[in-house]
Design a protein around this nucleic acid. Structure first.
Lengths: 331, 331
DNA sequence: ATAATTTGGTAAAGCGTTTGCTCAAAGAGG
DNA sequence: CCTCTTTGAGCAAACGCTTTACCAAATTAT
């Protein structure tokens, strides 16, 4: 590695002179300046980032721990985060595959790697761990609220979203609406399940919840089962779009018509919704916006500009073909 | 920020003693050791990453510049890269939105940010820039080969893949096969277009190529146009799955049946293919594997374990419903 | 008892930069 | 011709940590 020292020797000047030339500070004679610049260029000199960091604040890094980057919701979120930190920081991405142990290890790794802040995306880590890690670094958590004044949150009213989704299915004539949910460890799952339950209760119906998971495979598998058992189901509210898409596939394979036989609503409103067929009704989370908010909030905390805040977003229902038993503008 | 020095003062020992305790090296009396550990814990001490980096090799970072993380192909690739660098390095992710200027800026930023290597995913940067940046950092490029011994590549025989795809459409009875391709700046586009042309030529047919872009919107828009103009088309080979999915939507909206009226083949074989309907025939790129190879190759170069290499992957045709005019096992 | 070794700890050199202070030389003003 | 300012450039400290050389005391061997 070539250093400022090497250049100084070559140019027969002191390192401070070299530094001054390279940073355009201080007064250095024209000849020396040009000589130094020439040598630096020839040697492909790049200032040592870490040495620099020890002195003045340079560009820093923040970490984003995501359950699964291949879920379009999270990739949109990621893009939002990136936009939010633009120019201020670099984004270190980590895929936890939804394993809480892995998530803790990753956070620990980020902590010891000079990262200035961590964003937990929809994570399963225990509250105690979040509290612990927040002692070392500013933290932003998606979908979870903390007592501590030190932990910022980006929230979406999941149970209200789920309520809306379920209500929509009921309003469209479904009676036997079931829910494909995630596991109880994930707060989001619980909240969405609650919203579903509430809507069912209000309609005087019995909720049926299947805790199946988070991806297409999970949705496919369970829907297949339901088709094979010929269960009496005319609507499914899925905890996310991937699950919904998997379920749709299984239903169609089973000869069931969507939405006539079974109506479906997903959650997240990823860009897939428009492109599956029938197009998928979903509860919209403004992923990119949410990512952006998380990022700017984190940067603000890191740079000491403000205290911890909380962003709350509202879910909105985006109606598409998969849920309209009474065919209207779509067909 | 709390440092080793603070701890030393509190414990009334020298900083070297503290360092020894923290690193488990050297001999330190039991009482002092415990005292020091206790203080360190109380103060939430974390060793300064940058200071550490200046002395011994710690975990380092590598950068991945991707056109668009929301494209499932790239998110799978990203996951592969992450797996490949696991434990060795942290991954800095950057979205260029396919803008070559942005890509250069990003690489430049990585260069000055202590990053030890860069992976260019399907990038549009000019060759001269890649050569330039490779003077400073090890570089791995997807889908592009370089003279320089310093630049590693992960390749896929795109034109062969495209050839296969087109051939498959022709073998299934299509005569008027068109191609939805990307722009000429992207080598991949050109290669895929070439494969398409070759297949058409061999069949004695005239190729028709539309340079439309890389996402669902582009595919949708162009297909809409074609439907409206009632062009004579019975097969479309799309440069990637997203374009294909967009096109499918437009065709279906136009009342055309897939594959009976128009057969479709995509490229990438993203996990979407299984979940759209009809399911999408596609040319498989083993994204995760490719990412993993790129990453291990980069790490190898960084750690001086080997010279630059080249990985070549083979595209395979994955047949699904969207391309089978003669209905067989699917229906 | 003396020499040799182990144990516990300190001081200082570096890693690569930046920057405040110093100082000499040169040019300007009286 | 002498002081005053400007210009150019070096020295050295600091950033936080690791590591080596080194020293003293305590323990062991001779």
């Amino acid at each position: 590695m070539i250093t400022i020292n090497d250049i100084a020797k070559m140019a027969n000047v002191s390192i401070s002179t070299v530094s001054r030339v390279l940073n355009g500070k201080g007064r250095v004679g024209k000849e020396k300046r040009e000589e130094i610049l020439k040598i630096a260029k020839e040697l492909n000199y790049v200032p040592n980032y870490h040495a620099r960091c020890m002195i003045n604040e340079s560009v820093f890094t923040v970490g984003f721990i995501t359950p699964d980057i291949t879920n379009p919701f999270f990739s949109e979120l990621t893009r939002g985060i990136e936009i939010g930190i633009l120019g201020k920081a670099l984004l270190i991405l980590m895929n936890s595959f939804r394993d809480p142990k892995t998530e803790e290890e990753m956070a620990e790794r980020l902590k010891t790697s000079g990262t200035k802040g961590i964003i937990f995306g929809n994570s399963r880590v225990e509250d105690s761990f979040v509290s612990y890690i927040s002692k070392f670094l500013p933290v932003v958590v998606f979908d979870k609220e903390y007592e501590s004044e030190k932990i910022a949150s980006v929230l979406l009213d999941n149970s209200y979203g789920a309520f809306k989704a379920t209500k929509h299915l009921l309003d469209n004539g479904c009676r036997n609406v079931i829910h494909f949910g995630g596991t109880d460890e994930l707060l989001v799952s619980v909240q969405r399940a609650n919203g579903y339950k509430e809507a069912m209760k209000q309609a005087g119906l019995t909720p049926r919840i299947f805790k199946i998971g988070y991806d297409e495979k999970a949705g496919y598998k369970k829907a297949k089962e339901i088709v094979e058992k010929r269960e009496k189901v005319d609507g499914i509210f899925c905890m996310n779009d991937l699950v919904a898409i998997g379920a749709m596939k299984a239903l169609k394979e089973g000869g069931l018509k969507i939405p006539q036989d079974v109506a479906i609503v997903g959650f997240d409103d990823t860009n897939l919704c428009d492109y599956v067929s029938p197009s998928l009704t979903s509860i919209r989370q403004p992923a990119e916006e949410m990512g952006k908010s998380a990022a700017t909030m984190l940067i603000d905390v890191i740079e000491g500009r403000c205290n911890v805040r909380k962003y709350v977003f509202s879910p909105t229902l985006v109606v598409r073909e998969s849920s309209l038993k009474t065919r209207g503008q779509f067909s």
